[in-house]
Design a binder for these strands. Structure first.
Lengths: 248, 248
DNA sequence: GGATGCCATCCATATACATGGACATCTAAC
DNA sequence: GTTAGATGTCCATGTATATGGATGGCATCC
C-alpha cells in the first residue's frame, strides 16, 4: 500500500461522508493522520481541485474533479447496457416497472428503472437504504450466512412502514424463505402500496447486481409467483450473458 | 505537491477520461509514470476499490468508491438549495423552463432543470458540451478576453445545427454583444426549435454558475428581452444571496 | 518451438515524503 | 490585554517510497 495514495482516498472518503465541510482539526480526528502530513496532502488536493477550500480555507469539502471522475464509473460499467436489454425484455413480458441495481458494501451504486417503453431513469446513486426493507437488500443478504447478516445489520432493524420487519431473528427467518424460494419478496416494507420481487445475480459478495420488479401490493399470490418466476428467468439469462462476455 | 497524491488523482482522471478500460502499459503512456511506480499505486487503489481490475487484472477501470465519493459533491454544494429557490421564483415569473448550471473548466458539473412546479431534475453531470453553441457557454466565455477565448476554443468551431457559429471572429463579435447587453442569447445554435437566454454569475474564472431560460425559438424580440431582463434580475439576486451567505 | 509483447512481481538504492515541533496569525472568550 | 484554540507555514531528519532493471508467467503470432 502506498501510504500517500491510501491517505488521499481516506481523506476524500472522510470529506464525502461528512454532511458538512470539515476543518483540518476535524479531519485529523477522523483520519488519525498527523497534522502536518494532512496539511501537505490537503494543499495538493486543493490545487488539483479534488478538494474545495472555503475562502479563507478553514473548511474543506469534496471538489468538482472528484465528481467528474467518479461519475465516469456509470459511463463505463459494461454490465449496464446488457442490463438495459434484460430490463426491457422483462418489462415487456410482465408489464410492471422493473429495476436493475448494483450494490456494493451496502451502497446502491445505481438504480436503473424502466417504467415503460419510453420512461427510464438512473437514480439514487450512492444512497444508503436500509437493506432489510428492500427486496433488493434481502436478495443480497440471502447470499450471506446468518452470522454475517447479524454482523452487518443493527438490532432492532429500522422501520420505514408498519410492515417493516424490526426483529433480527424474524428477518433471518425471512432470509431462509428467500433462499428456499429463490427470490426476495417485500410487501410494503419499504414503500406503502408497493410490493417488490428481487433476484440477485449470484456471484461474489459484497458487490452484486440484482434485477427486481415492483408492483401493486394487492396482487394475488399466483400472479406474484408468475412474476417472480419471470424475474428469476431473466436474471439467470442476464447472469449467463455476463459470464459469456467475461464481465464481473 | 505530494507526488503520490498527485499521481493518484492523475491515474483516476486518466481512467475516467478513457472510454475503455486501460492496461498498465496504456496508463503508462498516458500518465508518463514509471511502470513499477504505477503498479504499486494501482495495487493500492484496487485494494481500496477506487479502481476496478478485470478478472486476471490486465485492464483497469474507475471503481465504485470513486463514484460514491464523487457524487457527495452534489449533496454538499451550498449553492444548490439557494439556486433551487431562485429557479422557482424565476420560473413562476416567466413561465418557461429554467436551468441552473455550474461549469468548471469547460465541464458542466450539473444542470438543474425546472420545467414546472413538480417536474425538476439534475442531469448531464460532467458532460462536455461545445461551449460556443450554448447560451450558458457564451455567458461564461464573455467573462474572458478575446485572447483567452481564442486559446480555449478550436477554430473552426464545431457546428451542431445550421445556426451554429463556426467562425471564431464572428463568435468573438457575438461575445461582444453578450457583454454589451448583459446576457447571452442562443437561437437554435444548440437545439433546433429552442432559444436560450443565459446570465452567468460574475466571479472568478474558470468556475462559474449561471442561470438560464430556454424557450421556443420563435418568440418576438420584446418578449425575449423581457425574459432576459428577468433572468438578469434573478441572477443578480442569487449572486447577492451567495455573497451574503459567504458561498463561493 | 521460438520470438514477441504483454503482464505481475521482486529488489537495492537514491530520492522524496512524513513527521513533530516551532512560529506567526487569527479568532473567540474571558 | 490576555489566554486558549484554531489555522497555515516552515524545517530537519528518519523513514517510506520511487524507480530501473531483472525475473517468471502467459498469451499471441510466425
Amino acid at each position: 500500500m502506498v501510504k500517500s495514495a491510501e491517505r488521499t482516498v481516506r481523506i476524500l472518503e472522510a470529506l464525502a461522508a461528512s454532511p458538512e465541510r470539515l476543518t483540518l482539526s476535524e479531519l485529523q480526528k477522523r483520519t488519525g493522520f498527523p497534522r502536518s502530513s494532512l496539511h501537505a496532502l490537503m494543499r495538493t488536493l486543493v490545487e488539483l481541485k479534488w478538494i474545495e477550500a472555503d475562502t479563507g480555507s478553514s473548511a474543506y469539502g469534496i471538489g468538482p474533479h472528484a465528481l467528474l471522475t467518479g461519475t465516469a464509473y456509470l459511463d463505463k460499467d459494461p454490465a449496464l447496457p446488457l442490463a438495459h436489454d434484460a430490463l426491457e425484455d422483462l418489462r415487456e413480458e410482465i408489464g410492471h416497472t422493473v429495476h436493475f441495481a448494483r450494490r456494493d458494501d451496502g451502497h446502491v451504486l445505481y438504480l436503473a428503472t424502466r417504467e415503460s417503453r419510453d420512461r427510464h431513469a438512473i437514480s439514487r446513486v450512492g444512497r444508503r437504504l436500509p437493506a432489510s426493507v428492500t427486496a433488493l437488500g434481502q436478495a443480497l443478504l440471502a447470499q450471506l450466512t446468518d452470522d454475517e447478516v447479524a454482523a452487518l445489520l443493527p438490532d432492532p432493524l429500522p422501520a420505514l412502514t408498519e410492515q417493516s420487519i424490526t426483529d433480527l431473528t424474524k428477518f433471518t427467518d425471512e432470509l431462509d424463505q428467500v433462499r428456499a424460494r429463490g427470490y426476495a419478496l417485500e410487501r410494503e416494507q419499504g414503500t406503502p402500496g408497493v410490493a417488490c420481487v428481487a433476484v440477485a445475480v449470484d456471484y461474489r459478495i459484497p458487490a452484486t447486481d440484482a434485477i427486481s420488479c415492483s408492483m401493486p401490493a394487492g396482487l394475488p399470490q399466483e400472479e406474484i409467483e408468475r412474476i417472480a418466476e419471470a424475474v428469476i428467468r431473466h436474471t439467470r439469462k442476464f447472469a449467463a450473458t455476463l459470464r459469456r462476455e467475461g464481465i464481473r
